Simulated assay, not measured.
Amino acid sequence: MKSLYEINLQREILREKSAEILADFFRYMETQKIEEFDIKTPVGQLYQTVEDIYNNIFKSSKFEGMKELSEANGKLDLAREILKNCYLEK
């Protein structure tokens, strides 16, 4: 079992990672002149997932253990790759 320090350190890392990805979303929105994502679209769902992690990483019980944090990390990696490969200019 990981210590509270290790869990909080991982939370901090994921918060920073999600902030970087949100910045990419905002850049995409700016270049495409999008004010708000439609949550029914794939990019809107990705945005909502990343925003949920960013906003709740320290608040929600769904991010209490290393397993949950590892899952959140995987979601962030996937969101970053999809955003980079499908939406951002290369």
Rank of each mutant, 00 (worst) to 15 (best):
M1H: 07
K2H: 14
K2S: 13
K2M: 11
S3R: 06
L4A: 15
L4T: 13
Y5Q: 13
Y5V: 15
E6A: 14
I7W: 10
L9H: 12
L9P: 04
Q10L: 14
R11I: 09
E12M: 15
E12T: 14
I13R: 02
L14Y: 00
L14D: 01
R15P: 02
R15M: 05
K17W: 03
A19G: 07
E20T: 10
E20F: 14
E20H: 13
A23M: 11
A23K: 13
A23N: 12
D24I: 10
F25T: 02
F26L: 10
F26I: 03
Y28H: 14
Y28C: 06
Y28V: 06
E30S: 15
T31I: 12
T31D: 08
T31M: 09
T31C: 03
Q32D: 06
K33P: 11
I34N: 05
E35F: 14
E36H: 15
F37L: 05
F37E: 02
F37C: 04
D38K: 06
D38S: 08
D38N: 12
I39T: 13
K40Y: 14
P42M: 07
V43R: 00
V43K: 00
V43I: 14
G44F: 04
G44R: 03
Q45V: 02
Q45E: 10
L46N: 03
L46H: 05
Y47I: 00
T49H: 09
T49L: 12
T49A: 11
V50E: 03
E51L: 15
E51D: 12
D52T: 07
I53W: 00
I53V: 06
I53R: 01
N56A: 02
F58A: 00
K59C: 03
K59M: 08
K59Y: 08
K59E: 07
S60I: 05
K62V: 13
F63D: 00
M66Q: 12
K67E: 08
K67D: 10
K67H: 11
E68H: 03
L69T: 02
S70H: 10
S70A: 09
E71Y: 05
E71W: 05
A72M: 00
A72Y: 00
A72G: 01
N73D: 12
N73A: 14
K75E: 01
D77N: 10
D77I: 04
D77Q: 09
L78F: 05
L78G: 02
A79V: 00
E81Y: 11
E81M: 13
I82L: 11
I82F: 02
L83Q: 03
L83A: 02
K84N: 12
N85A: 09
N85D: 10
C86D: 07
C86P: 04
C86Y: 15
Y87M: 00
Y87H: 06
Y87E: 01
E89T: 12
K90D: 07
K90C: 03
K90E: 06
